[in-house]
Nucleic acid binder design. Structure first.
Length: 425
RNA sequence: CGGGGUAUAGCGCAGUCUGGUAGCGCACUCGCUUUGGGAGCGAGUGGUCGUAAGUUCGAAUCUUACUACCCCGACCA
């Protein structure tokens, strides 16, 4: 795509309202703009990243055998009365009325809706297990939205709900989701920990959280430096532990020592058991022909929050450093003197066509501005690889490769292999 | 909701104390020259100073109320 055609309103200075790195950089890179506190518009660049993450999640969920659906954002009060949550939930449940004065809410989650679907459409154990997911906008009227997209009121979430005939089937799905989540976060390119968590208001048997380790995380987790062990300190606090004294002690699993870290919660998996199935009378006939209440699990990923989390873990003083798999573009071709120097313009377009045909997503910076502006913007928006076409092309048919990680090299213009090698590792 | 802070052009800011009809940098528009680290010169565009009321001959500036936004806390699948 041509830079000059895209709406990428980059900023030299971060707006006063932004406090943390990811929020500042998302605003400066022209990825998002605020509509109201905790409510944002995703501009083209931000949306590209969001979609990349969404697609990784979708591919892995589909790969696990889960099925995608799309549920309504506006939900009727009646369903929420069945689980008593219309009354139990606080003001974070945004209640609205339609023109007939009928009560609705903006969905903060979808257990009620999906359970209603299942109880009305699944009658036999033979149809189970089922794992149904969606990627959809949620609304929670948070007491205090903050940090831009990180803790918004409106946000994008992948939520899935499994329906199992018994506890062991639920356990199987739970483990499958746990493994699927690992694949997802690894593909996105994040450093994360799985920690035991407080299952909170939602209840249920047990739950684990996936945390991206980052300075600006809102959660405090105790991790072992020598194993997978991790636990949310909320859980320890409720057990009366003194968190400060834990740092440096041996890990309970005997491997490594405990460190206290900040984490951003990007995923949460729960075994719900019969909780919702019972209150919503959800059962099927089992092999003995008897009605059997279903076991449920639910599994969430904060899709939009992942964008911020990825930035919190990958940036420097110049801007964002996207992990390759979620970068809005793979390559930025910086054409110096584009549309002025015929040779350069033609070479840039030719390279653009070649790389695009090879299925790379390529940005061509054709703007009539100097090299400095172009490379600064590219560094800010975090494109992994820049290809510079300028004087050196005219003089001896050479282009320069500048990776966002700092690596540089001069190469013959027809040395596409070197460019491709960049994406091999 | 408790505590703290901010609000002047798209972004960053000055001007407010001491009232006199709004300014700087960047961005934007036009022209010419430029093009390998945020270009130069010249000419321009853009603001009912968050909203409302009050004091005053006169309010960005003083008074009162309100609103929005941010931070800490409480809250949080």
């Amino acid at each position: 795509m041509l830079f000059s055609n895209l709406l990428i309103p980059t900023l030299k200075d971060a707006p006063q309202e932004a406090e943390i790195v990811s929020h500042k950089l998302m605003l400066r890179a022209g990825m998002i703009r605020k509509a109201a506190s905790g409510i944002y518009t995703w501009l083209p660049l931000g949306l590209k990243v969001l979609k990349k993450i969404e697609n990784i999640i979708r591919e892995e969920m589909d790969g696990s055998g889960a099925q995608e659906v799309f549920m309504p954002m506006v939900q009727p009060k009646e369903l929420w009365d069945e689980t008593k949550r219309w009354d139990k939930m606080g003001l974070e449940l945004l209640r609205i009325k339609d023109r007939h004065e009928r009560d609705f809410c903006l969905g903060p989650t979808h257990e009620e809706v999906i359970t209603d679907i299942i109880r009305n459409n699944v009658k036999s154990y033979k149809q189970l297990p089922l794992n149904i997911y969606q990627i959809q906008t949620k609304f929670r009227d948070e007491v205090r939205p903050r940090y831009g997209i990180m803790r918004g009121r409106e946000f994008l979430m992948k939520d899935s709900y499994s329906f199992n005939i018994d506890e062991s089937s639920l356990q199987e799905t739970y483990i499958l989701m746990r493994e699927t989540y690992k694949k997802i976060f690894n593909r996105i390119g994040l450093d994360f920990k799985i920690s035991k968590a407080d299952s909170g208001a939602i209840g249920g048997d047990s739950s684990e959280e996936f945390h991206v380790l980052a300075e600006n995380g809102e959660d405090t987790i105790a991790i072992s430096d020598g194993s997978e062990f991790a636990i949310n300190t909320e859980l320890l606090l409720s057990e009366g532990e003194d968190i400060d004294s834990l740092e440096g002690k041996p890990s309970p699993d005997g491997k490594g020592i405990i460190q206290i870290k900040k984490g951003i919660e990007v995923g949460h998996i729960f075994k719900l058991g019969k909780l919702y199935a019972e209150s919503m009378k959800t059962n099927v006939l089992n092999a003995d022909g008897k009605a059997s209440t279903l076991y449920m699990g639910c599994y969430g990923i904060g899709v939009s929050r992942l964008v911020a989390a990825a930035i919190e873990q990958n940036y420097d003083e110049k801007g964002i450093i996207w992990p390759h798999n979620i970068s809005p573009f793979d390559i930025n071709i910086i054409s110096i003197g584009h549309n002025k120097e015929k040779e350069i313009t033609e070479a840039a377009i030719s390279l653009y066509d070649q790389l695009t045909k090879m299925n790379y997503s390529v940005l061509l910076d054709d703007r009539n501005v100097g090299y400095g502006s172009k490379i600064k913007d590219s560094e800010l928006i975090g494109i992994p690889l820049n290809i510079i076409i300028g004087k050196n092309y005219i003089d001896n048919k050479e282009i320069e490769l500048i990776a966002r990680n700092g690596d540089k090299s001069m190469n013959p213009v027809d040395d596409i292999k070197t460019i491709l090698n960049f994406f091999k590792n």
